[in-house]
Amino acid sequence: MENDLKLKLEQLHQRVDALKDQINTEEATKNAFVMPFIQIIGYDIFNPTEVIPEFISDIGTKKGEKIDYVIKKDGEPILIIECKHWKEKADAHNSQLHRYFHVSKSRFGVLTNGHVYNFYADLERPNIMDDKPFFTLDIANLKESNLKILENFTKQGYNLDSILDSAEALKYIKAIRSEFEKELQEPSDELVKLLVNRFFEKPLTASRLSTFREYARRAISNSINESISYRLKNALSMNDKIPSQQQEETILPIDENIETVKAITTEEEVEGSQIVKAILREVVPSARIAFRDTQSYFGVLLDDNNRKPLARLHFNFSKKYLELFHNGKDNGEKKLLESLDDIYKYRKELLATVEKYQQNYLVTESSNTVS
Rank of each mutant, 00 (worst) to 15 (best):
L19H: 09
F135G: 05
L150I: 09
Q358M: 07
I52W: 04
V354H: 01
N159H: 10
D91N: 15
H326I: 04
K148Q: 14
K233Q: 15
E151A: 10
E269N: 01
Q156C: 00
D122P: 06
I80R: 03
F37R: 04
N234Q: 15
Q358W: 04
I228Y: 11
T353H: 03
E338F: 07
S366P: 03
E179H: 10
H93Q: 11
A167M: 05
V16N: 04
T49M: 12
I275M: 06
E248H: 03
N141G: 02
L142T: 08
L9E: 02
D68G: 01
W86E: 04
I264R: 13
V110L: 13
Q39G: 15
S227D: 14
L97P: 08
N306K: 14
K20A: 04
R347I: 00
A92H: 02
G64W: 08
N197V: 02
I220T: 00
D240W: 12
S237Q: 13
K202C: 00
H98Q: 09
K233Y: 05
L236F: 14
N316C: 03
A92W: 02
K87V: 10
L194V: 08
L232S: 10
D304E: 09
K334T: 02
I251E: 06
W86N: 06
S221F: 01
F46K: 14
F134R: 03
I128W: 06
E201H: 10
T211F: 14
D165V: 07
K193A: 01
H93S: 12
E248Q: 11
Y344D: 09
S221A: 15
D131P: 00
F46I: 06
D189H: 07
F298P: 07
D304R: 14
T250P: 02
E249M: 08
M238V: 11
T353P: 02
V284C: 08
Y344R: 13
D161V: 10
P285D: 05
R292Q: 12
D58S: 11
K277Y: 13
T211S: 07
A90P: 01
Q185E: 12
K20I: 00
L170Y: 11
A28Q: 14
